[in-house]
Design a protein around this nucleic acid. Structure first.
Lengths: 224, 224
DNA sequence: ACCTGAACACCGTTCAAGT
DNA sequence: ACCTGAACACCGTTCAAGT
């Protein structure tokens, strides 16, 4: 049933596509083709179908990308906000969030740009975090900045994963920016010693900085 | 000399385009057309020229975008790293960096995705920062993570500027995510009182957290 | 050297026609 | 309801032909 039988026009007895199959294909495609080659045409080809067939199941390309984000959001839990102090609960959340993106490096370039749709999951996950912080003493006026600052760092870090390891034009770099060069080499060495990537090391450092800063900030609020 | 005189083929006596004019046009176009409408075809139209004419001055679309990044990088100074302590010098740098992006909100979606080219300015600016941190006591092994973590936050925050003010589906939000809703409203009120945007307020908070965390971290290094 | 015009291989999306 | 095929208005880029 492979190449030799182009399907003829008309509704097939058995539907070929579903929304979920389309999203499956979208993840595969973004992995192989990257941001550039991610098109409805390629997606249709991969699913063995003509491009217009997709539009029976999704409204347009943006809906496909939003559905990918929704699936990524569903892929990790917002856990421990009820049984751990906020500063401990935020750490696994931040890592899970960032890793979910890093697992689909090519996808995040698609997502970062697209304004949020109205997927429920995302809201409900956030509500868990906001209300946990509030219960544990954060003033409401601070909540949004705290969570969104963390998220900005997470998203920026996910884009950092995308950066090619040696993007910094090695030759010119060593000559004209020796300290920077040495610093990047040192980070690479640290990463290797820990069995992690350079981006992992930096994410760990940055997250600790933020959480540390947050604990100080809350103390100041409580003692005033 | 407007509509009625389509230029005839052949080299004009006086060149019409320059690389700089093309980049000028690119900024205007990205402001008006956003990420979607940003095409070589539209850019040519705005410059009063046929699309292939652009290719006499730039190699391709990516070069245009990279040139935009270079210009943004040139638009702000890496100052005060010689006459202020690092934790004070980083603040105006971070704001200038982020504001340079925020001044061209539509542009940053183009930039965030594209891997760095080899523009010199960017390197040399970074070298100033790296070497200042090193002189002032930061271990080389820490430098890359410190600077890149900051940068990740900055870039993530610049993308936050892009997010529509009321993207969070107001109706559903108030019902199903009341704490989040209240928190976002509170942030909006704070911003209004300060004559700033919500994204500004969050950037300020996040940057303070990071710098505060950094000062703690350096103290720990020095006392060990 | 630097423009136009024609051309190529792509896009996303709509719509009629088929079953 | 769910597919194909034709069509439309777009892309980025190449290349010959003009001056």
């Amino acid at each position: 049933m492979s190449a030799a039988s182009p399907r003829r026009a008309g509704r097939p007895k058995q539907a070929i596509l579903t929304r979920d199959l389309i999203i499956d294909g979208a993840f595969e495609l973004s992995k192989e083709a990257g941001t550039e080659g991610f098109s409805m045409k390629q997606l249709a080809k991969r699913l063995g179908v003509q491009p217009p067939a997709l539009y029976n199941h999704v409204a347009n390309r943006n809906e496909v990308v939003n559905a990918m984000r929704e699936r990524i959001a569903l892929s990790f839990q917002v856990d421990h906000f009820d049984d751990l102090p906020w500063y401990d609960a935020l750490v696994p959340w931040a890592w899970a969030y960032r890793n979910a993106f890093a697992a689909h490096p090519q996808t995040i370039a698609l997502l970062a740009i697209l304004p949020l749709g109205d997927e429920e999951v995302v809201f409900l996950n956030y509500e868990v975090i906001f209300s946990a912080l509030r219960r544990q003493g954060w003033p409401v006026s601070e909540l949004a900045s705290v969570v969104i600052a963390l998220e900005s760092f997470i998203i920026g870090s996910a884009l950092d994963v995308l950066a090619p390891e040696d993007n910094q034009a090695p030759g010119a770099l060593a000559d004209r920016a020796p300290t920077m060069h040495a610093a990047l080499e040192a980070r690479k060495a640290t990463a290797k010693a820990e069995g992690a990537t350079a981006a992992d090391v930096t994410f760990d450092v940055g997250l600790r900085l933020l959480i540390d800063g947050l604990r100080n900030r809350l103390e100041q609020f409580e003692s005033s």
